[in-house]
């Protein structure tokens, strides 16, 4: 900065392209660091024939303004649930639910609600006292079904693309499973508490088996895919507990169910075994986490 500024005559002649090279050069160098001379020269050039071009380019440049930054914030949620674009104007809670996976926003939560409300209604309005064993028999399968609807090629149309994103793979599976558990665990346990005991184990007794079955589904899912795994696990539970109880002879069906459930769920040894099974499945899942990065085999 020298305090020198281009005389008006120099500015006009430069704008009219009538300045010899050496003087043009020195003026150009000056314009690189003098805003006020730059403004004067630019104004002078605007008044020449180049003015029309400058106006055109100005319009084009302003039209090329980048999209405002807030639009970018949605993209993380969109990675999780690529099916529907959600404008950022929706409430935050809705976006979180949307991002939590296909199961939580589909028919599954309605089914969970129906199971819980149906059990309560059956017990209190219908006077049927065997609802808690029934609920306990069905409850461990509910989160497994939620997992089946959350992940995999059949549940998510953009499954392969989602898998290729940094937040895909095991992280995505666990996020969606957590969402499923967050909905089903409190709802079903609460419903169980509202039911008469009628010889069945406590309302919270299904929690560890539920967790064990869910983690078993995920671990098995790393071998055979989520849908098959959940079908095998849920089917296995239904065959092992309620079906066997109903097929057995002697006594009232609900009493037999309650008895069978007590054998499976009650007491420290049974709960300890479920906890051990859950831990084992989680360990297996962690060991096989890489398989979720490649999408699932069909």
């Amino acid at each position: 900065m020298t305090g020198w500024h281009a005389p008006d005559d120099l500015v006009t002649r430069y704008a009219d392209d009538a300045l010899p090279e050496p003087d043009a050069w020195s003026l150009e160098k000056h314009l690189e660091e003098c805003g006020s001379c730059a403004t004067r020269v630019s104004r002078a050039v605007r008044e020449t024939a180049a003015g029309a071009v400058l106006v055109d380019v100005r319009t084009a440049v302003l039209a090329a303004a980048p999209v405002p930054a807030p639009a970018r914030r949605v993209s993380n949620a969109r990675l999780w649930s690529p099916r529907v674009f959600l404008p950022s104007s929706r409430p935050r809670l809705a976006r979180v639910l949307w991002a939590a996976g296909p199961a939580v926003r589909g028919a599954w939560p309605a089914a969970v609600l129906l199971v819980a409300l149906g059990a309560v209604a059956l017990a209190h309005a219908g006077g049927f006292d065997g609802t808690r064993p029934l609920l306990l028999a069905v409850a461990p399968v509910v989160p497994v079904a939620g997992v089946a609807l959350s992940y995999g090629a059949h549940a998510d149309p953009l499954h392969e693309i989602v898998t290729a994103t940094p937040s895909g793979g095991l992280r995505l599976v666990l996020t969606r499973t957590a969402a499923v558990l967050a909905v089903s665990l409190p709802l079903l346990t609460l419903a169980g508490l509202l039911l008469p005991a009628s010889g069945a184990p406590g309302a919270a007794a299904w929690l560890l088996p539920g967790l064990a079955l869910t983690s078993a589904s995920l671990a098995l899912g790393s071998y055979v895919g989520c849908r098959t795994a959940t079908a095998v696990i849920a089917g296995g539970w239904l065959c092992a507990v309620p079906a066997r109880a109903l097929a057995a002879h002697g006594g009232h069906p609900t009493a037999r169910l309650a008895e069978q459930l007590s054998r499976c769920l009650d007491g420290a040894p049974a709960q300890g075994a479920w906890a051990a099974a859950a831990t084992l499945c989680v360990a297996l899942l962690v060991a096989r986490r890489a398989t979720f990065d490649h999408g699932e085999q069909r």
């Binding site: 430069y14 704008a15 392209d17 043009a24 150009e28 314009l31 805003g35 730059a38 403004t39 020269v41 630019s42 104004r43 002078a44 050039v45 605007r46 180049a50 071009v53 400058l54 380019v57 100005r58 440049v61 302003l62 303004a65 980048p66 999209v67 405002p68 930054a69």
Partner: peptide
């Protein structure tokens, strides 16, 4: 940098003229 169009318009008006001339030369 924050996407302000009026700032871009002011910057353009200040510099586009001489840049155009310099490029045209």
């Amino acid at each position: 940098a924050d996407g302000d169009s009026t700032a871009m318009a002011a910057l353009y008006d200040r510099h586009a003229g001489w840049l155009h001339m310099r490029l045209a030369r």
